[in-house]
């Protein structure tokens, strides 16, 4: 056994907790708190200054839309299934208005044909873009048939906003669910999460895309393109915060159904005449 090495304790700075003296403690304490204060000040101040310096070099200002306060509105959508004729005008108008890529649909129309089978036969040829052919072969004894237009329901308690890891999907103050194209990474978690299959990954931008209730139109007091295109007043768009809105009156007075109510997503697309067969 060799000699135990003697540790010389410097009376000025005590190292180690056991033999720390008051001076050593104060030095350590002040050192750490100074470091903490510096780091918080730095992280608060420096990025802002750098950002402002960079912004001053930008050539174009961000476009600002004045005169519209998103908190003054809260939109809802009504679809009257007693009236839909399956013409597909809405699908065509949406494609034209929003440059939706071929093969993808922000809104689409489904046809349900209930025959003798347990479940209805559902078809949606190209989303109803060119209307529907006269009938699908093989459906025996059709007793009831109808069209169901669908799109993003802009739910109040969305699964899609909840699962977005990047804060790209969000709910606006006026009730719409939108996707921030710059923050979206295209992970498609939201595409999986949506129970209404209304989202898709845009093949051109590689970000999540979906019906936006034509926010660039509704924020200017216009109606979405699909609502305007519909020839039979199947699709209606209203502002729940506007006391004179006829669609708001309709929602408050008529009986409405929603798609997949058991999921408790609180959709804002209300259906009149919804059948139990509709999935």
């Amino acid at each position: 056994m060799g000699a135990i090495k003697e540790k010389t304790v410097n009376p000025e700075r005590g190292t180690g907790v056991k033999d720390m003296n008051r001076r050593g403690f104060l030095r350590a304490f002040l050192g750490v708190s100074l470091l903490g204060a510096m780091s918080s000040v730095l992280s608060a101040v420096v990025p802002g200054r750098v950002r402002r310096a960079l912004a001053a070099t930008k050539l174009q200002p961000e476009p600002v839309r004045t005169g519209y306060n998103a908190y003054d509105h809260y939109y809802s959508y009504v679809i009257n299934l007693h009236k839909c004729i399956g013409c597909g005008s809405c699908v065509r108008a949406c494609k034209m208005e929003n440059e939706v890529p071929t093969g993808f649909y922000r809104t689409w129309v489904e046809r349900y044909q209930k025959g003798e089978d347990e479940h209805a036969r559902i078809d949606s040829p190209e989303g109803g873009l060119y209307g529907f052919p006269a009938s699908t072969a093989g459906v025996e004894g059709v007793s009831k048939a109808y069209f169901v237009p669908k799109m993003c329901n802009h739910c109040d308690e969305t699964p899609c906003v909840q699962v977005c890891p990047f804060g790209a999907s969000y709910k606006t103050p006026d009730g719409l669910i939108l996707v921030d194209g710059k923050r979206c990474m295209g992970c498609s978690y939201c595409v999986q999460a949506c129970p209404y299959a209304s989202r898709f990954i845009n093949p051109l931008t590689h970000t999540a895309d979906k019906c936006t209730w034509c926010y660039h139109r509704t924020s200017r007091g216009l109606k979405p393109a699909c609502v305007q295109a519909c020839p039979t007043a199947t699709r209606l768009f209203g502002d729940m915060k506007d006391p004179y809105d006829p669609v708001r009156k309709l929602i408050e007075e008529e009986r409405m159904g929603v798609l997949q109510p058991q999921l408790l997503t609180k959709p804002k697309c209300y259906y009149i005449g919804l059948d139990k067969e509709v999935r």
Binding site: P63, R65, Y68, A93, M96, E97, N98, E99, L178, T212, C214, Y215, H216, R217, S219, R220, L222, A225, Q228, A229
Partner: peptide, 9 residues
């Protein structure tokens, strides 16, 4: 998003 494009219709 409000200015994403000029309304076509």
């Amino acid at each position: 998003q409000m200015n994403i494009r000029v309304p076509r219709h």
